[in-house]
Amino acid sequence: MFVQQLVNGISLGSMYALLAVGFAIVYNILGIVNFSHGATIALGAYCAYWLSTYLRLPLELSMVLSVTIAGLVSALIERITLHPLRRKGQPQIFFFIASLTVFNLVTAIIIYVSKANITSYPRTLIYGSIRMANVIVPKLDVLMLGIAVLSLLALSAVLYKTKIGLAIRCCSYDSRAAQLMGINPDLVIGTTFLLAGLLGGIGGALLGAKYAVYPELGDMVYRAFFACMVGGLGSLTGAIFGGLLIGLIETISNAYINAAISPAITFGLLVVILLVRPQGIAGKLVEDKI
């Protein structure tokens, strides 16, 4: 039974990890806490549902399209909220609030359009489960873990093998110097949000496949926030570790302590980890720049 619980924890954690990476890319590169990530998660799930149900597109195609939509919406959100704030030279912390408001607004719109209907895709993405001795692993989980790893590899390829990736990394070290070198900050930031939105969309579409499509799906962003920070600053792999860790702690405390009090245990433990290792599990300690 313990092995089964471990599998449960890893499968939940891999979901959190995928959401956390999208959150982490914006945070690590731009230093912005982007709660509108929650909006893209919810959109990823709902668009896949709308496309596959009302337009009767094949589910896989709907999911790909909805990921694209989520990415574009994320870039659009940057354009209409962060961009003007940046132009006015506002501290980036103002985006903290703007992104919270965008998150609220998108959630309200989704609730209005969907009439708060809880639903799911017209069919299951992949059936069946792999059974080893007493342990059951749904195939969907394996697939999702695979997609999570693939998206991450693709992301590193973009960051480390392309020109825009170089520009993004350049901006994350020193955005002013990057501008002086002729890098267009609007393009870089827009691309970063696009990437984050794509990841959020993938996460949302898969969450929809695994659990259900419902309006509060976006609230996962708070868990993603935790995973990103506990995993470690400046490290995307850290976010994955963070996600897995939260999934495991949550599952273990649900199973062996008391599920009703488990948020207190999970989040208490996470704060303790942050106190012991303020840089996160995989992060490097960044000293203040004076």
């Binding site: 806490v33 708070y222 926030f225 935790f226 920070m229 009703a260 009090i261 488990s262 948020p263 207190a264 989040f267 208490g268 996470l270 704060v271 942050l274």
Partner: peptide
């Protein structure tokens, strides 16, 4: 901010 979110979740559970 993270710690305060944690506190909020924890108090609610308690």
């Amino acid at each position: 901010s993270l710690a305060t979110i944690a506190y909020c979740y924890a108090l609610q559970a308690i």
